[in-house]
Amino acid sequence: MSFAAESFTPVLSLFGGILIGAAAVMLMALNGRIAGISGIVSGLLPPQSDRTGLAWRLAFVVGLVSAPLLQMVIAGFERGHIHQVASLPILGVAGLLVGFGTVLGNGCTSGHGVCGIARASRRSFVAVLVFMASAMTTVFIVRHILAGGSQ
């Protein structure tokens, strides 16, 4: 193990976290709803999609998707090339697991990780411990066992 000092961004990441929290507080103050992304998105989907909440859920997703566009307009950023950590087939499998798992477990990093922990929810504490352990174990296996520790 070594420390990635060159990419460590404590201030910017703390600031980003505060904005994420402010967004969660805003959604509670205005619409009275938890800012859980998997819950907001899955409520749009069949079966039994949330018909009365369809419009605000879709608007929230539009807001999320628009964030990088706004960043480009304001900061004049060129379209950033994001280097992926996985091939397209693996990303497809990852997407299926993330979709299935977050709906089965009633939440993801936002709903359980931010809003749930902030509310001191017992279910969210358990979910966060389990998905962090599961994600860290997965990365360990992929990088240090399957890749032979070459990365």
């Binding site: 990088p68 977050t102 477990g105 009633n106 936002s110």
Partner: peptide
């Protein structure tokens, strides 16, 4: 379901580096 769901989500998150919010933000990066 809470625990199994969290395990499956964690595997997918670790494999791709995306959880639901950032993946949707990534859509906007086209």
């Amino acid at each position: 379901p809470l625990v199994i769901g969290a395990v499956l989500f964690g595997i997918g998150w670790g494999l791709g580096g995306y959880c639901p919010g950032p993946a949707l933000v990534g859509l906007g990066q086209a």
